Simulated assay, not measured.
Amino acid sequence: MSDDKPERDYASPVCLAGEIAPDYFDPGRVDERAAADADRWRKAERARLIAARGTLDEAARAARDAAIAAHLDRVLAERFSGATGKVLAGYWPIRGEPDLRGWMAALTGQGLRLALPVVVSRDAALIFRPWTPDAAMRAGLWNIPEPDTDEVVQPDLMLAPTVGWDSARYRMGYGGGFYDRSLASLRRRPYAIGVGEEAGRLRTIYPQPHDEPLDLIVTEAGII
């Protein structure tokens, strides 16, 4: 944090929070006006970050993805002794997200079980189905590929792709709330790792009461 006067990121800071401190927001306080302002701000920031992500060329994407994979290897080795026998839920990349499918495939040879999230309805938590590199796939909601099986597994670790994120480990995604609902409702909360770009770092995402903080954020620049 800095004592310098914060730069204005938008015309009307959310409930003047930016005039108090650049990373201040009380996620426990319910204020309809603040929530509406935060929603508009997130929508604008989401569009900006997705557009910026889309400008990366193939070489830059490959370098980003390799760096993130290396940091994730370090997380598994140092925090979970390699995570042998655990279920790790990854994701199928869309809209320029880091593509970790090759890294995930390599994990299957190291004793980990892999899973992918599945959207069952727009207002429900995610479920997780087992995945291997040669698994049969089908088109899910929004045509995102999902494992062609009815089996459901409970992840021990979960990767959550981010559009934006902040140092309090709050995640800004696409606005559907799927990961927040899942973390809040799973019987055994998985260790949640946000995966995103360093360019997605924000002073705050202005978290709301429903937002669930993650355990770690991993970008091409390192581990937060």
Rank of each mutant, 00 (worst) to 15 (best):
E58T: 15
R61I: 06
R61T: 10
A62R: 15
A62I: 07
A63H: 15
R64P: 00
D65P: 00
A66L: 10
A67E: 05
A69Q: 01
H71S: 07
L72G: 01
L72A: 10
R74A: 14
R74F: 08
R74Y: 11
V75I: 13
L76R: 00
L76T: 01
A77W: 05
A77Y: 02
A77T: 13
A77F: 02
E78G: 06
E78P: 05
R79M: 13
F80Q: 03
S81I: 02
G82H: 04
G85S: 13
K86E: 13
V87N: 09
G90S: 08
G90M: 06
G90W: 03
Y91G: 10
W92H: 12
G96N: 11
E97H: 11
D99M: 05
D99R: 03
D99V: 09
R101Y: 03
G102Y: 11
A105I: 10
L107C: 14
T108F: 12
T108Y: 09
G109L: 05
Q110E: 14
Q110M: 13
G111H: 11
G111K: 07
R113E: 15
L114E: 04
A115K: 00
S121L: 08
R122K: 14
R122C: 10
D123I: 08
A124K: 09
A124T: 07
A125F: 05
A125H: 02
L126I: 06
I127E: 14
R129V: 12
R129D: 02
P130A: 04
A135H: 10
A136G: 14
M137Q: 05
G140N: 07
G140K: 03
W142A: 10
I144W: 01
I144R: 00
P147W: 01
D148R: 08
D148T: 09
T149G: 01
T149V: 07
D150T: 12
D150M: 09
D150K: 09
E151Y: 03
V152H: 11
Q154L: 13
L159M: 08
A160S: 12
P161C: 13
G164N: 03
W165I: 03
W165P: 01
D166G: 01
R169I: 04
R169T: 03
R171S: 06
M172T: 02
M172E: 00
G173R: 04
G175Y: 07
G176S: 09
G176Q: 06
G177L: 12
G177H: 02
F178M: 06
Y179M: 08
D180C: 02
R181T: 05
R181W: 06
S182A: 11
A184W: 02
R187A: 15
R189Y: 07
R189P: 11
P190H: 04
Y191N: 04
Y191W: 13
A192N: 01
I193E: 00
G194I: 01
G194N: 06
V195F: 09
V195L: 04
G196V: 05
E197R: 15
E197S: 15
E197K: 14
G200C: 03
R201P: 01
L202W: 00
R203N: 08
R203T: 08
R203D: 11
Y206L: 10
